[in-house]
């Protein structure tokens, strides 16, 4: 699979997959728990980087697109101010169209 398989454009509404690979065995995941299953918006494509989930185990790691994704804080923690935001680097293979 190539990097373009996980392509998104700035402004796209995305949802982080509600997936928990660390429950299935040894894993190295760069997607924080608190955004799993949460909807956000693509800010920009930061570049393509070797998939850290393979790199960490010394396996061949194909380049995957990395995005800056903006999340409204109030969506994650209800008591928060609606305008505040979290800006998080998320790999394309963790994102889906809601």
């Amino acid at each position: 699979m190539t990097a373009t398989a996980f392509a998104f454009a700035p402004g796209d509404i995305v949802r982080v997959k509600d997936d928990w690979p660390e429950r299935r065995g040894p894993a190295h995941i760069r997607t924080p728990y608190y955004v799993r299953g949460v909807q956000g918006q693509i800010v920009r494509h930061l570049g393509d980087f070797p998939n850290p989930e393979d790199l960490a185990f010394g396996r061949p790691a194909e380049p995957r697109p990395l995005y800056h994704v903006r999340f409204k804080k109030g969506v994650i923690w209800a008591e928060d101010r609606a305008d505040d935001a979290l800006l998080v680097e998320i790999f394309g293979h963790w994102l889906e169209k809601p």
């Binding site: 760069r30 997607t31 924080p32 930061l46 570049g47 980087f49 850290p52 990395l66 903006r70 804080k73 101010r81 305008d83 505040d84 935001a85 979290l86 800006l87 998080v88 680097e89 998320i90 790999f91």
Partner: peptide, 28 residues
């Protein structure tokens, strides 16, 4: 973040300023 900045750092972010927390999670 606003509570932490105010209590631990004496940095009060005014209500009319939007706060963006950048979680440095990957290659940047």
């Amino acid at each position: 973040p606003r509570g932490m900045l105010a209590e631990e750092w004496k940095t009060v972010i005014p209500d009319d300023i939007r706060l963006t927390v950048v979680d440095s999670t990957a290659d940047y």
